[in-house]
Nucleic acid binder design. Structure first.
Lengths: 216, 216
DNA sequence: CGCCTGATTGAGGCAAATCAAGCTTCGTGG
DNA sequence: CCACGAAGCTTGATTTGCCTCAATCAGGCG
């Protein structure tokens, strides 16, 4: 059985899945490639990102633990609008888009769930658009940390439960890694966060949350 | 009959619609208000935007001619994540969210269409996130003009067929109006666009398109 | 006519990117 | 197991794109 991924969407799909193992750094699909299918993340952590300028990117989100992947590819004759790469060893389930779409056509409940999911994604996405347009970097980094903690939780000693390079944190916040580094340092000075190696713990959640309101 | 709006989504809904007339500047709903229903634009032009800082906003999109409005409010107990205001006299059809959701539950085809629509919105949205994060203002303005021309077409003499204040153009591009103004001037100098009052005509589409690739 | 909103233009400042250079970590292969 | 090179991290100096502020100007409208 497929406890973590497809089951919660629709058991019938489960029969048609294929598991794929990914090593750290493996690319599941790349922007521009024709859409073949849809994936569900069984274990691990996959970054979904959009490229700009060879060594610049924006991380859209992190997909783990049951998350659906490649759903933006629904529609006629599409290429993936984004890329997906494993941040750690991961396992994903693959379902051909053809099969997935035909399932949607006959299963209204599944489709309805998907509409709800999409609406929620759209809300997040549009909020983030505004933030990228108007919010200063410090607020965006604060927001990134809060979102990460919300998604991945904390270890017993309070650190956000994800291993992430500064590079990737920067891409998630939409800034350069030098700037993110400086901002992180400021936050440590202000006793709002705490570091241990590359791990980050939020000490003063309210202070970070306040940064996201700055000037709003 | 409701030729322009609901029919193409689902005729059955048509019976339950209520028409609402809006004057220029009227606000249909505001960020934070509880979601009551969903709208379809019958005629006119509605800007969908997200606020920041009292006199700063980001225009998400322009809804006209059959566009659905308020669909991000699908889900349990939500408040509108965005605001909607009429840019010109407009007519919209109102449908209660309750009714719309129950229609979705029994009408798989409609829901399936909605999923396709949402996936497309998500693709646009995520591309724009990246652009806001990494693309310089000039490229964003170029992109805004191209998108406007694509959506609204041109008048016989080649001008983009929409009346839009510089203010709103700036909010759409994600920049201040002063900056947008300067950029517009540059483009005129470079013979890439042409002005007539507030109307803008794209003279050299390729040059504008190239700006969107700058450094990519 | 005079007010008010939006357009236009200039000067100045600042946040963040870029550039540059040393340092640390990590993976790979000898 | 060590050596080496490549990535990534850290830090400072410099540049710059864009915003902010401020002032003037044009046009619509009561």
């Amino acid at each position: 059985m497929c406890k973590y991924c497809i089951e919660e969407w629709h058991p019938a799909i489960c029969a048609n899945k294929i598991n794929i193992k990914l090593k750290k750094g493996d690319i599941l699909f790349k922007e521009g490639e024709p859409v073949e299918g849809i994936y569900f993340v069984y274990s691990g952590n996959i970054k979904v990102y959009k490229q700009w300028d060879n060594d610049k990117e924006l991380i859209i989100r992190f997909a783990e633990n049951g998350a659906i992947l490649g759903h933006r590819g629904i529609g006629p004759n599409l290429n993936y609008p984004i890329s997906a790469a494993a941040l750690e060893p991961s396992v994903v389930c693959y379902i051909s888009m053809k099969f997935f779409e035909s399932t949607l056509k006959v299963n209204g409940e599944l489709t309805y769930q998907l509409v709800n999911f999409f609406a929620s994604e759209l809300r997040k996405s549009e909020r983030r658009m505004r933030d990228l347009a108007h919010m200063p970097v410090k607020g965006r980094v604060a927001g990134a940390l809060i979102k990460l903690q919300k998604q991945f939780g904390t270890t017993p000693d309070g650190f956000i439960n994800i291993v992430l390079s500064r590079q990737d944190l920067a891409s998630f916040a939409g800034a350069t890694y030098e700037t993110v580094f400086r901002v992180i340092n400021e936050m440590v000075q202000e006793q709002n966060i705490r570091l241990s190696g590359k791990s980050i713990a939020i000490v003063n959640q309210d202070a970070l949350a306040a940064l996201r309101q700055q000037g709003k």
